[in-house]
Design a protein around this nucleic acid. Structure first.
Lengths: 141, 141
DNA sequence: GTGAGATTTAGAATTATTCCAATAAACTAA
DNA sequence: TTAGTTTATTGGAATAATTCTAAATCTCAC
C-alpha cells in the first residue's frame, strides 16, 4: 500500500472548525472508520461499519457526514462506473487502479509533477484545477 | 472540437455482426443520435432525442441499445460523478474535461504515447488495459 | 438556562437502472 | 413459404442509491 497523507483524527476538528462546522461524534466516527480500512467503501458499507460502534446512527447521517467531509476536502468521493459512490480518506495526490477481476480499488502514488505534466496537454482556454486518473486492469494478487 | 474517430453508421452493422448481434433500427438510431450531438448525453436524454424520430421506442430499449454499443466498443460509457452515466461515441483515445461552471463535458485529444507514459507510473504487478483521465475546471466560453 | 442555529434522525420521495414476462421480429432449415 | 428457434423490443414492476423533509436533539453564545 502506498504511503498515505491524510488529515489525522485530531486535525479533523480543526478543519471542520475552519469551515464553521462542528466536530460531532458522528462526523468523527465516520472519518475514523474510513481511516481504519482504506478499501474505498460505499456509503452503505460505511453505514454498516459505523453502526457496529454507534448503533443509533442513521444512514442519512452517514450520507451527511460523508458529504461534509468531502466538502472539507478531508475525504475524496470517487466514481468509476455505474454504481454507488466510494469514499477515500487519502488526500495525497494519487491515481486509482481498479482491479477488474476482484472489483477492488488500489491507490497509486503519483510521482511529483505528473499531474502538472498531464495538464500541459490541455489546449488554450482550459484551466483545470484537478486531474483524476483511473486505471483499469489486472493486479497481481 | 477535437477531431473524432468513430465507427461510421455503415460500419456499425458490421461491428454488431462480428459480435453475433443484429443491426436493428433501434440500435442504429441510438448510435446516430449519439453521433449527431456529441454532448455526452444521459440515457434519458438519448431517449428523448430518439423518441422524436421513433416515438414507439421504449426507455428500456434505449438502455439495452446503449449497453450493446458499449459492449461492441463503438460507444464509451462515462461516469465522472454521482449521477447518471453519460455516453460518448468518440472512440479515439481522449480525456474528458468537465466544466464546473456549465456542467458540460469536452473531449480532449491525447498526444500519442501519453497513455503509455502515464502507465509507467504503475508499480510492478499492475497491468492496466485502460487509462481514463478526467480534468475538472473552467473552460473559456 | 434560554434562544438561535446546527445537526441528526426516520421515513418518504426521487432518480437511475435493471429485471421480467410477453410480444414481435429476424434467421434457419426443410 | 413456413414452422421452429433465437434474438430483440416493450411496458411495467422492482431495485438500488441518494436526496429530501420535517421533527427532535444538540451545542454554543449570551
Amino acid at each position: 500500500m502506498p504511503e498515505t497523507s491524510t488529515a489525522t483524527p485530531e486535525s479533523l476538528s480543526q478543519t471542520l472548525a475552519e469551515s464553521g462546522l462542528r466536530a460531532t461524534p458522528q462526523r468523527e466516527l465516520v472519518f475514523n472508520i474510513l481511516l481504519k480500512k482504506r478499501d474505498h467503501p460505499t456509503a452503505d458499507e460505511v453505514f454498516a461499519r459505523v453502526k457496529a460502534e454507534m448503533p443509533t446512527i442513521s444512514l442519512a447521517t452517514v450520507y451527511n457526514c460523508l458529504e461534509t467531509l468531502v466538502q472539507c476536502r478531508v475525504v475524496r468521493a470517487v466514481n468509476f462506473e455505474r454504481g454507488p459512490t466510494r469514499y477515500c480518506p487519502n488526500q495525497k495526490p494519487h491515481a486509482h487502479f481498479h482491479d477488474e477481476q476482484t472489483g477492488s480499488t488500489h491507490d497509486i502514488d503519483l510521482p511529483p509533477g505528473l499531474l502538472d505534466q498531464v495538464k500541459t496537454i490541455l489546449p488554450e482556454g482550459y484551466d483545470a484545477n484537478s486531474v483524476e486518473i483511473i486505471f483499469r486492469g489486472k493486479a497481481q494478487s
